[in-house]
Nucleic acid binder design. Structure first.
Lengths: 156, 156
DNA sequence: ATTACCATCATACTTTAGTACCGAATGTCC
DNA sequence: GGACATTCGGTACTAAAGTATGATGGTAAT
């Protein structure tokens, strides 16, 4: 980490300085010039408080946070969603079978195909289809499909 | 480069230190008479070096980069807009009349109604409808309607 | 138990849709 | 002019859709 590296440099610098001063003072001591001891003292104080300052700063200063905002696009509702108009469906009062058959009608199935698909006889399907027309007030399967789509009671 | 930056810091620190020592020495010279000023002097040194330490630390500490991913919703095509798939329409190679009749078919009109509406005979309409089925590869009007809507070549 | 409704299936019938094959008028391109 | 595609129209037939009516069995409310 760079931060640690920087500190190492500074501390190394400080230590070297201290050692030098000590060496110097020792030499001064040796030559009985002791009255300059105050300088060493001050140097030590300076060194200590510098270190203290750095340490405190490191503890206290909140690291600068650079926030990089990356926008992530989310596509919502790409397909034209089918929304069933339940109110309209209720109005018609279709029973389950009739609505089921209406949906199959819209998919293009013939009466015979519908009969096979939902296990009914052809005549039953015809009956349901006829009742469906009555309730929807139409006269053919194509009209029923067109109206059902207008009313939004079937898909597509 | 980090190394150069570090050096700059260290040199700056050294210079500041040098200036300070000069200042101190100058102060010592001036206020040599005041004996107990030594406490204030050391206090000032401590304060200064603490500040210096903090300053250095502040310079050296690297900003932390934080990446925040923000999700942005993009609404696409919410309205049930009809978009004609011209490519699909081209593929079928329907002629004008056939496409016209296809549209009327989807609206629920019978062959007879279509004939009246576009001033054709019933047999002509039947012919067109038959050809339409061949081209669309279907076998009934309801299938044609379902397929046309799937292919997005008619409205609704 | 009676009434009413629903779902199922059936028969008989009419109407519409769909297929197959054909003919004819029109306009365009080579 | 001849070849070709488009559009229009017809006849004859089959298949499917749609209508009308009735019957059966189940379920649920009164």
């Amino acid at each position: 980490m760079t931060l640690l590296k920087d500190f190492r440099h500074i501390i190394l610098y400080g230590l070297t300085l201290a050692v030098l001063i000590f060496a110097l003072k020792w030499m001064q001591w040796k030559f009985l010039i002791v009255d300059n001891a105050i300088d060493i003292y001050i140097g030590l104080v300076a060194l200590f408080f510098t270190t203290l300052g750095i340490w405190v700063a490191k503890q206290v200063i909140k690291p600068k946070v650079e926030t990089v905002i990356v926008e992530k696009e989310i596509v919502v509702n790409q397909s034209t969603e089918f929304i069933l108009d339940e109110a309209a469906l209720e109005k018609l009062k279709l029973n389950g079978r009739e609505y089921e058959i209406l949906q199959l009608l819209a998919k293009g199935y013939s009466n015979a195909e519908i009969a096979t698909r939902i296990f009914l006889s052809l005549s039953t399907v015809k009956t349901h289809v006829s009742n469906l027309y009555s309730k929807m007030d139409v006269k053919s399967r194509t009209q029923a499909i067109a109206k059902a789509k207008q009313l939004r009671i079937i898909e597509l």
